[in-house]
Design a protein around this nucleic acid. Structure first.
Lengths: 185, 185
DNA sequence: ACCTCATAGTCAATTAGTTGAGTAGGTGCC
DNA sequence: GGCACCTACTCAACTAATTGACTATGAGGT
């Protein structure tokens, strides 16, 4: 149900192909609603059938043809109505690493997993930083927030950034605890 | 696949009924692997069939009968092997509120949603605090970390706590941004 | 000449997760 | 005396998500 609105929200940024959306869902949208390309294509099909998006074929010369999708007025209205309703379900985190950590008996193995997570988090922060630069487009944050019509994308990006920063701080904390335990009984 | 190991990890704390597990998945485990009671009962059935847990019927007088589940050596070994492997999939957050915020045009409505989220986050922090007190059982954190055999449950709890704290900080930030926009063109 | 990567998808099968109802006795509150 | 909530599940139907394979074309490197 929510994927539907995530797709509609993504199309607020303008016309896009399924492939382009799958790129967007790989970076910014992945922070709060991950989706695979297959999910997106299926959802776009449904949305088109329901008249919430409009599809148009684009013939291409040096690339495969594609379909570009745009929000219809009905889609825009549906999204607007969704946005002001309180969420039906609470936010959920699914993190396999934490299951492993919960069960872990071997501090060395735990250390390795945490290090890996930190590398990955730093990579993600780098990518967020690039998305942020593209959004701000040379302006300072204050300028952007004053000028821009829609602050939503920036605020959700901030959530992604603060999540990964906190993630890293927690990892440091875990490493400190584990350090005391390596070589211990 | 991961729910399986989440259940096994939960049973590391000792024998439990499906109902008790569903309580655990409502509080501590919900931070990193949410599951409904129905999912748990189904999973326990499978685990019992695969010989990773053992079930025993317990007749009760003033309450419905129940089945208590214990880890078998095979289950323990399967979990141990899982724990030291790097995660197959990255962590995922699913948060309907962020879809709404991404799409939001109305600062007043956004304000209301964020306030609601803050109330909810404070409630969750309170519950975590109670779980923490029960874990520490009168000891200081340092004492606990030195004495306890398994630090996993404490470290995952810390992740839940730091997640919600960061959540609240981000909410404050969003409110500050929204404040500037209310009553603006 | 071959191989990999990027674009731009589709199809089918399976697993995972959600929702709602039903059963059934016990406890606590006003 | 009634009603809601707690314990402790089970069943069935449904929707969502994952996985892997497949189709095509072009670009760039070795």
């Amino acid at each position: 149900m929510s994927l539907k609105y995530a797709v509609l929200a993504a199309l607020l940024e303008g016309e896009a192909s399924g492939y382009e959306l799958s790129k967007a869902f790989d970076v910014s949208f992945a922070n709060f609603w991950p989706a695979t390309p297959q999910q997106l294509y299926r959802e776009l099909e449904r949305l088109a059938q329901d008249g919430l998006v409009e599809a148009r074929f684009v013939q291409q010369e040096r690339r495969p043809n594609k379909r570009m999708f745009t929000l219809t007025p009905a889609g825009r209205e549906d999204l607007r109505a969704f946005a002001v309703e309180p969420p039906r379900r609470p936010s959920a985190v699914r993190d396999e690493l934490l299951i492993k950590l919960q069960a872990m008996e071997d501090p060395e193995a735990a250390h390795a997993l945490i290090e890996e997570r930190m590398t990955w988090a730093r990579g993600k922060l780098d990518r967020y930083e690039r998305v942020r630069d593209r959004l701000l487009d040379g302006r300072t944050e204050d300028e952007f927030l004053r000028e821009s019509d829609r602050v939503g994308p920036y605020l959700t990006l901030l959530r992604g950034i603060s999540f990964e920063e906190e993630n890293l701080r927690w990892c440091e904390r875990v490493l400190a605890v584990l350090k005391h335990r390596v070589g211990r009984g």
